[in-house]
């Protein structure tokens, strides 16, 4: 049986290549039909804000890419309630249907997966 994997993405779309690398891991895993989860933690929750205007700094639109997740078979999406609250982001303003979780739920979430990658 395929081993499951949780990818924890914890950088904003604009701090280097980390957010994109995390998404690439997820999309590649999805193409192989691996059971995957994606957790937005720390500044990673900034990826969920919509709209963003990447062309003003000559970057590609990560938000648009993220909308393709369900077509890649990635439906297990999570975000840290604490990370959202710390950054003043309202739960109903997010661009993806993430499940919002408290710290203790996240601890349990990690244990459900065979592998964890934090990027």
């Amino acid at each position: 049986m395929a081993r499951s994997m949780l990818i924890i993405t914890r950088h904003s779309p604009w701090s280097g290549t980390s957010a994109r690398e995390a998404l690439d891991v997820v999309l590649a895993g999805g193409a192989f039909e691996l059971p995957l989860g994606l957790l937005f933690l720390d500044d990673g929750v900034f990826q969920l804000i919509s709209p963003q205007h990447p062309s003003s700094i000559q970057q590609k639109d990560l938000t648009a890419n993220l909308q393709a997740l369900s077509l890649f078979g990635i439906d297990e999406l999570y975000a840290s309630n604490r990370s959202l609250a710390e950054r003043g982001i309202a739960a109903d303003s997010l661009s993806l249907p993430v499940k919002i979780m408290q710290d203790d739920e996240l601890t349990a979430l990690i244990k459900r997966y065979d592998h964890v990658i934090t990027i």
């Binding site: 639109d61 648009a64 393709a68 077509l71 890649f72 078979g73």
Partner: peptide, 15 residues
Amino acid sequence: QEFQLSPATRPLVKY
């Protein structure tokens, strides 16, 4: 146009 990326086979089929 919508997703700013080229799909792999599986998402292409789904779409």
